[in-house]
Amino acid sequence: MALLTCRDLSLGYDGKEIAGNLNFEVNAGDYLCIVGENGSGKSTLMKTILGLNSPLSGSITTGDGLKQTEIGYLPQQTDVQRDFPASVWEIVLSGCQNSQGLRPFYNKNEKAAAKANMEKMELTALSGRCYRELSGGQQQRVLLARALCATKKLLLLDEPVSGLDPKVTAEMYDIIKSLNENDGITVIMISHDIGAALQYANKVLHIGKEIFFGSVDEYTHTRDTFAHTEGGGVK
């Protein structure tokens, strides 16, 4: 059974559709890249999968014992976070909320998990530092460590490399690839960068006027034919 299945999904706000007719599934171990133009509804799709927005129609089902609250999420940065006084440790630990329920304080296991994820993201030395004083790449690693505290199975990453310089971008892609290959975490990533998508992912979902879902090979193939016919049209 697939980890995540979307059937005839239609997305939007206040009854107005932004993207529709989405059919895809994600299996354990997949690395799915979501591409499409700005404003085509990629972030909205992620929020709908997370249950932050309700779909206009269609269904999202989780399988393999995955609960909707056990998805790790790396959001596009919001304004509040930029001037927020919080240490790296406080932020990473806040990823453990889904196991907490109504219990007011974190227990030993949760603190140990937070420590382990900071170690994995090479953040241990920065533990007490203030989030807003870190570099862009360090900030993204903090949010990634927090997301890892929330999940062992599925990560949703919304433009994880936007605003990073090329070197840090490459490091970030390596980290994500390693989480996928070595830790067996399924990854769904939104990216502007189609090159990276094709290099790292095994599946592609394109939303916009053309909807495409399939393997990377199929995607490169269809893109070639697109380019061919379009090129022919101009001549």
Partner: peptide
């Protein structure tokens, strides 16, 4: 803290 720092993430993790 969680709700103030990042309401979307907090909601996604079931808060």
């Amino acid at each position: 803290f969680a709700v103030t720092f990042d309401e979307n993430f907090a909601r996604a993790t079931g808060i």
